[in-house]
Design a protein around this nucleic acid. Structure first.
Length: 637
RNA sequence: GCCCAAAUAGCUCAGUGGCAGAGCGCGUCCUUGGUAAGGACGAGGUCGCCGGUUCAAUCCCGGCUUUGGGCUCCA
């Protein structure tokens, strides 16, 4: 009985019964067979060698289809495992999934792999690729699989098989001397795997559980062509060159010291950036109707018991004792704002009340998880809490969305991702409250014309939330802003407002931040702009570079004029040639260089060089100052 | 917290069981220059901290500290 399948161009092809994707591809053209990695059958990706079913829609997947890359990477992970088992027969295999930008495979090893081991493994992988070993799928019964992997001495695989849900098809893949439990699909033979590279090793726990065995994870990546692989490796290099920890040191922005682990020390230049960020937010707050408050650093634990932090957040808090009273450093500002709100009676006419706070926060992070500026133990948020009546939520949310998008655009973040997290299983409050809160968030997003995805059940126990992520210049996502609805804390603190009818209501509290942690934001910004800050943020906005010491006095005049105008300049009086001074200013990514020689001193001008555009020629001093002032005022990117 | 790795001049890094090294940076001098590195000389170090082995430790061993890569994107 012949079967027929439908191709993507809607043509129908007749095949003999038992024909596979390989037969189909070969039938269409030998070149297609050569280019084929897998097939898509009724939407699901399958092995090229899987038998075709009558009446199905089939497409041959080549390197042009995005799915093919995952297949290649997954198969390369198997190639890695095969190479490891050839070189290190005692090693037990864990899992080897595809991840963003590559794959990894976990191994239980006697001795952690060294970089030299990785080289040897990679060489072995190339050998297997050249051998062009066929990759063959088998389906098996659970008991057979357990027995088989047990006989192979692979305890992790046995564990996985036993825990697979009933009813799923269990499959294994054989390639030469290697056999692995795997859902597939895979490339038809190892010769299809050509452009791959092992990157590094790291420890990982079996199934991410620190009580379970520690495995040696090998990370790698694979592409269709060497060219794409090289491009990817180049991007990794680029990311390394932009690393904010490296740039922070080179540009003199901040340092870290063992005296306060994971806590940045901002140097004068880093402090300029930090303060500019705060100034910028303050300016926005004026327009948006926020009032800034200042609240204490160390607070009695009784308050943290009221707020719930003592119960739910204690492990991340720092405690101290004075006069037999226990205090905690604040990890969040919200409870202190509730105390301020509670000092007076509030009418519905007073709402919304928006308290902003640039207070320093301390959170204990486990020693292994801190990282540069992006994960620290002390930081400051552009934090604010909005107290409003439930019916005001939607309007507040809408204006917040406009606000946050405006801020992100100022920094040159064009692509923004929004996630709405809805009610979790364990939660406070009535369903009506949740309906209102989630509905308000969703409506406000829709009315603002913002696309978003939903994270069902991922909201906080006290209310739903929205997270905002930006993509930086290297297209890496970073979560920055957040908007959380909180029904719980206002009532815990007994906060009320008087409604129009004279009865008392409990306000809703919105927690919100735009930049998130200023420390983390600065780290992201450094990497986003590779240390070349827009003029308004640049620690040094212009370098004054005299060519000869005959013009030092003129240079000093320009310096004082700039200081009067509030422009940050640096005067380079070193006994160096102008080329050297320009080079050094360029390396510090200073936006403007003012080159001064006898000509400029005589005419009262400055020769302007821009860090990207190069020599802009001579300009009148006032012209230059007017232009740079304007650039700063509008916060040009 | 756990695993692996690193820690040597301000920075980047080399090196050795027996006097501590380079490049850049810094200082002084010569040079006074026109849009990405002029030249000479010089200063600068408890080789992260504590202990052990040794005639001798920056180097070998142990502990600690900090930093870095990671610790489910589930066959």
């Amino acid at each position: 009985m012949p079967i027929s399948v439908r191709l993507p161009d809607d043509s129908v092809r007749e095949m003999p019964d038992g024909a596979t994707g390989t037969d189909l591809a070969r039938g269409i053209s030998p070149r297609l067979l050569d280019a084929a990695f897998a097939i898509r059958v009724d939407g699901a990706v399958q092995d090229l060698n899987s038998p075709l079913k009558d009446g199905s829609k089939v497409a041959v997947i080549t390197s042009k289809d995005p799915e093919s890359l995952d297949v290649v990477r997954h198969s390369t992970a198997h190639l890695l495992a095969q190479a490891v088992q050839r070189l290190f027969p005692k090693v037990k295999v864990g899992i080897g999934p595809v991840i963003e930008d590559g794959f990894y495979y976990d191994f239980l090893v006697e001795k952690f792999f060294t970089p030299e081991d990785l080289e040897a493994i990679e060489a072995e992988m190339r050998r297997i690729s050249e051998e062009n070993v066929p990759v063959v799928r088998e389906e098996l019964e659970r008991e057979d699989a357990i027995q088989r992997f047990g006989a192979m001495g692979e305890p992790f695989k046995v564990e996985l098989v036993s825990e697979l849900p009933a009813g799923v098809t269990i499959s294994g893949y054989r390639q030469g001397d290697f056999y692995d439990l795997c859902r597939g699909p895979h490339v038809p033979s190892t010769g299809k795997l050509k452009a791959f590279k092992l990157l590094h090793t790291a420890a990982a726990y079996w199934r991410g559980d620190e009580k379970k065995a520690q495995l040696c994870r090998v990370y790698g990546t694979a592409f269709h062509t060497q060219k794409e692989l090289d491009e990817h490796l180049r991007r990794l290099e680029e990311a390394k060159a932009r690393d904010h920890r490296k740039l922070g040191r080179e540009l003199g922005l901040f340092s870290f010291h063992p005296e306060a682990p994971a806590s940045p020390f901002f140097h004068p230049k880093g402090t300029v950036i930090y303060n500019e960020l705060v100034n910028y937010m303050r300016q926005n707050y004026l327009r948006e109707g926020y009032s800034e408050v200042i609240t204490p650093q160390a607070l009695d634990v009784s308050m943290w018991k009221t707020s719930g932090h003592y119960d739910k957040y204690q492990e991340n808090m720092y405690f101290t004792e004075v006069e037999e009273k226990e205090y905690a450093l604040k990890p969040m500002n919200c409870p202190t704002h509730c105390l301020i709100y509670g000092t007076g009676k509030h009418s519905y006419r007073d709402l919304p009340i928006r308290y902003a706070d640039f207070g320093r926060l301390h959170r204990y992070e486990r020693s292994g998880v801190t990282q540069g500026l992006t994960r620290v133990r002390t930081f400051c948020q552009d934090d604010a809490h909005i107290y409003c009546a439930p019916e005001q939520m939607k309007v507040e949310m809408a204006s917040f969305f406009a606000f946050i998008m405006d801020v992100y655009h100022t920094f040159g973040f064009e692509e923004i991702r929004i996630q709405l997290s809805t009610r979790p299983e364990k939660r406070l409050g009535t369903d009506e409250m949740w309906d209102l809160a989630e509905g308000s968030l969703a409506d406000a997003l829709k009315e603002a014309g913002l696309a978003y995805t939903i994270n069902p059940g991922d909201g906080a126990f006290y209310g739903p939330k929205i997270d905002f992520s930006v993509l930086d210049a290297l297209k890496r996502p970073w979560q920055l802003g957040t908007l959380q609805v909180d029904y719980s804390m206002p009532s815990r603190f007994g906060l009320t407002y008087v409604k129009p009818d004279g009865s008392e209501g409990t306000p809703v509290m919105l927690h919100r931040a735009i930049l998130g942690s200023l420390e983390r934001f600065m780290g992201i910004l450094i990497e986003h702009c590779a240390g070349a800050f827009p003029v308004w943020l640049a620690p040094v906005q212009a370098a004054i570079l005299p060519i000869t010491d005959r013009v030092h006095d003129y240079a000093k005049q320009i310096q004082s004029k700039a200081m009067e105008l509030g422009i940050r300049v640096e005067l380079d009086l070193r006994n160096e040639k102008v080329n050297a001074k320009i080079r050094d200013a360029q390396l510090l990514k200073i936006p403007y260089m003012l080159v001064l020689g006898d000509r400029e001193a005589a005419s009262g001008q400055v020769s302007v060089r821009h860090r990207y555009q190069g020599d802009l020629g001579a300009q009148g001093l006032d012209d230059f100052f007017a232009k740079i002032k304007e650039e700063i005022r509008v916060r040009a990117r």
